[in-house]
Design a protein around this nucleic acid. Structure first.
Lengths: 127, 127
DNA sequence: CGGTCAGTTGCAAAGCGATTGCAACAGTTC
DNA sequence: GAACTGTTGCAATCGCTTTGCAACTGACCG
């Protein structure tokens, strides 16, 4: 446990905006200048291996990290790339399919795509 | 419509294994030697824009393309990275959530993670 | 059938996110 | 306080993807 890791954890834990490595690196920079980007990568990867974080892969954009490891789902804004969490018991109750192919599913996650509040066209103002 | 695009379509349409650009490039190479990788990228991107294909982003691996644009879901093998399709009316019936954040969902897709038939441990043979 | 034009291809270079090797360094243990 | 183990910073590198540009091809028209 080093000062760098402490700074990263302090910044990372509790965030719900699924920051990218770059975003984290920039935000930590204010408190802990000089922290290397590679260190952010390595530390986050360590967290994922320990089961303390998850990766959220989004094509065409930098990979995002999520400090919440409980089952939940995501909303992806098609326009700005923002990622929000969804907690929904009905979704969690989905049964794992038993396809004929023999695939054994262990977990699942639902990805909703659409527009976030900031990007959705307002009713009173045409987009 | 060029010979390159014809070759790519002939190879791509009907495939259910969600090939990567590299796989497509290699497979087309047999029939249409000399087709450039950049052309494969550009043509697939055109197909996606036209709504004739979809991207399946998988972290840590090359991006895959799916010629099926109907609503369906995916099984991702954690071990070999293979992607299978899942068609399931129960899954399709999921309602789009209306989160307090104001996010407007338009579509969704369920990603199951687990082990494919080839990677799952056999009952008679310890892995 | 030949000319014109828009759009596509091939090539190479560059962009970008992510990873890695290695030496310097910090935290922990004794 | 010395030794050891693991982490950091840096720079180089890797792999996937994109892009600029000149050459080319297919479609269209007369």
């Amino acid at each position: 446990m080093t000062v760098q890791r402490r700074a990263l954890l302090a910044e990372f834990v509790g965030r719900t905006d699924h920051p990218t490595v770059d975003a984290l690196h920039a935000d930590i920079g204010r408190a802990q200048a000089g922290l290397n980007r590679a260190t952010v990568y390595r530390t986050l990867e360590t967290l994922v291996e320990l089961g303390l974080a998850r990766r959220v892969a989004v094509h065409g954009a930098a990979c995002r990290y999520d400090p919440c490891v409980e089952r939940h789902h995501h909303l992806l804004c098609e326009r700005c790339g923002a990622v929000e969490d969804v907690f929904d018991a009905a979704l969690d109750a989905l049964r794992l399919p038993r396809p004929a192919s023999g695939f054994v599913a262990r977990d699942f996650s639902v990805l909703f795509t659409g527009l976030c509040a900031g990007c959705a066209p307002r009713r009173t103002k045409a987009h």
